[in-house]
């Protein structure tokens, strides 16, 4: 017989989660299916799948896709360089730095890039002296590609943190076995390494995607709302309060975000579990 008393120790944590995650989540769900008068309706979901809100989802999606893909490649190469070159203390230093960079972001990051690549930024100035005018062709830091560069600053370190254990999981014996048996280096990578790390890399891609999809602070501070990503739209709907059913539309946008992130994270967790099981 199960002893229900055994579960009493979990009550504080469960109560806390229900109060501060359950209630907010319920509120979002309920309001997203209501108009501002409290009548039940599906209008909000019609609103967010058309016009500027559909564009916002598309913009957020593209930004997350590009930033995840680019940081996946760059971060992996960087982590490969760090592990393969075997320079003493380098690995410790890089993983500490990555821990810091992956965990910062937001407002300070935006200001650092304004100081570097903004219209009057120092790097912009240097490049201008070298004859490269970044701002000549109507490019700005506050555009899509500018924000993409800024996002790499926390996405690549996250990729490095995740890649280091993946690369260290590639055993020396595998390479030695393959090379002794006469496999060329390229074949070894294609037939041995790729199948092993592909699921892990795909899981990491999803992690990077959701990380950038959910990010708000960096975009808000850098573009002051001019680049209409979904989180930016939610914040402006809540704070401006001019649109009919504005808050309800924001909640529906929230439900949309939760669905997309939820799907990606579910696949991520399933893949991660399989990898862990396989590794042990």
């Amino acid at each position: 017989m199960k002893r229900y008393v055994d579960y009493f120790g979990l009550v504080p944590l469960l109560a806390f989660i229900v109060a501060f995650l359950g209630f907010p989540l319920l509120a979002i769900l309920r309001f997203s299916f209501q108009d501002s008068e409290g009548n039940y309706t599906l209008n909000n979901f019609q609103t967010i799948t058309s016009g500027i809100y559909r564009d916002a989802f598309w913009l957020s999606f593209q930004l997350s896709l590009f930033s995840a893909a680019i940081s996946l490649v760059l971060g992996f190469i960087f982590a490969l360089a760090v592990t393969r070159l075997q320079i003493p203390i380098l690995k410790g230093l890089i993983s500490t730095a990555s821990g810091v960079f992956a965990n910062t972001g937001g407002v300070p990051l935006a200001f650092m890039f304004i100081a570097s690549l903004g219209t009057y930024g120092l790097l912009t100035d240097w490049l201008r002296k070298l004859g490269i005018d970044l701002y000549a062709n109507s490019w700005t830091l506050y555009s899509f590609s500018g924000l993409l560069i800024v996002y790499l600053y926390f996405q690549v370190p996250l990729m490095v943190l995740v890649s280091l254990p993946i690369i260290e999981g590639i055993k020396r014996e595998w390479r030695e076995a393959a090379l002794t048996l006469g496999a060329p280096y390229g074949l070894f990578w294609r037939k041995v390494i790729a199948p092993i790390i592909a699921p892990q890399l795909f899981a990491t891609f999803l992690l990077l995607f959701t990380n950038s999809f959910a990010a708000y602070a960096t975009a808000a501070a850098l573009t002051s709302g001019s680049l209409a990503l979904v989180p930016v739209q939610i914040a402006s709907l809540i704070s401006s309060n001019v649109q009919v059913d504005g808050a309800n539309t924001a909640m529906a946008l929230g439900v949309g975000m939760i669905s997309i992130v939820g799907i990606a994270m579910t696949i991520y967790i399933v893949l991660e579990r399989r990898v862990v099981k396989w590794r042990n």
Binding site: L21, P24, A214, Y216, M257, I258, V261, M265
Partner: peptide, 8 residues
């Protein structure tokens, strides 16, 4: 993790 901070 599934609920973006702004939505929370």
């Amino acid at each position: 993790l599934v609920i973006p901070p702004i939505v929370q």
